[in-house]
């Protein structure tokens, strides 16, 4: 199976402290991996380095065969836009936009017309049971609704890699089930999935679980 992600000896140093110490990890297409570990062990930092948001102090992130951190800023942004879908612990929607606008925005930016992007957004929102809430401002969505919108946004460009940072951390169990279904759907679409979680149910649904402790995998 083709490799989507290869992390080679990633290190993230903050001052004198190494938050991530030589982490290496591979993900294949459609593979789901759960990243578990105690709070503060470096999971989110690792996810942000893989997601091209936080530059590693050492090591490489190879995405679909490209050393992603050696690309220039504009190309790296393109890679984020086209190949990576990010789901944060807090939904991180743009509050000034509606649910539909939040989901459509990355597709519109990537090259779809606005109408096509909104159609794609509508389809995803319907799939996640949010068709009736598509015009609601992000600030008026419940936590569970907002997290589903965030997942829809992460999937709208059909990314090769979905990174989810404790996506059910702030949800009740019913909402968490819906989010888990949504992430499983992403994986079913062929995306590699890396989920940081404390939720054993999510970890159990992943094909592989990787534990992180003191910055090491």
């Amino acid at each position: 199976m083709p490799k989507v992600l290869r992390c080679e000896s990633l290190v993230r140093r903050l001052g004198a402290h190494d938050v991530v110490r030589g982490a290496s990890l591979d993900l294949d297409e459609a593979e789901a991996v759960a990243l578990v570990g105690p709070s503060g062990c470096g999971k989110t930092t690792l996810l942000q380095m893989i997601g091209l948001l936080d530059r590693p102090s050492a090591g490489r992130v190879v995405l679909a065969g490209h050393d992603a951190w050696s690309l220039d800023d504009a190309v790296r942004a393109e890679v984020r836009l086209a190949w990576i879908g990010f789901v944060f612990q807090q939904n991180n929607l743009v509050e000034a936009l509606s649910a539909r606008e939040n989901v459509a925005l990355p597709a519109w930016r990537l090259g779809s017309s606005r109408r096509e992007a909104e159609r794609a957004a509508d389809a995803l929102l319907e799939r996640f049971g949010l068709a009736a809430r598509r015009d609601a401002p992000a600030s008026e969505l419940s936590v569970g609704e907002a997290q589903r919108v965030a997942i829809a946004r992460a999937l709208v460009n059909r990314p090769r890699l979905v990174l989810a940072d404790e996506p059910t951390g702030s949800l009740d169990s019913a909402s968490a089930d819906v989010v888990m279904e949504a992430l499983a759907a992403a994986s079913a679409l062929g995306a590699a999935l890396l989920v940081v979680t404390h939720d054993l149910r999510i970890a159990a649904r992943a094909g592989r679980t990787v534990e992180m402790r003191d910055g090491r995998l």
């Binding site: 948001l53 942004a77 890679v79």
Partner: peptide, 10 residues
């Protein structure tokens, strides 16, 4: 958020 979605610095 925009940066994370793929909007470049420019």
């Amino acid at each position: 958020i925009l940066a994370a979605l793929g909007f470049s610095r420019r």
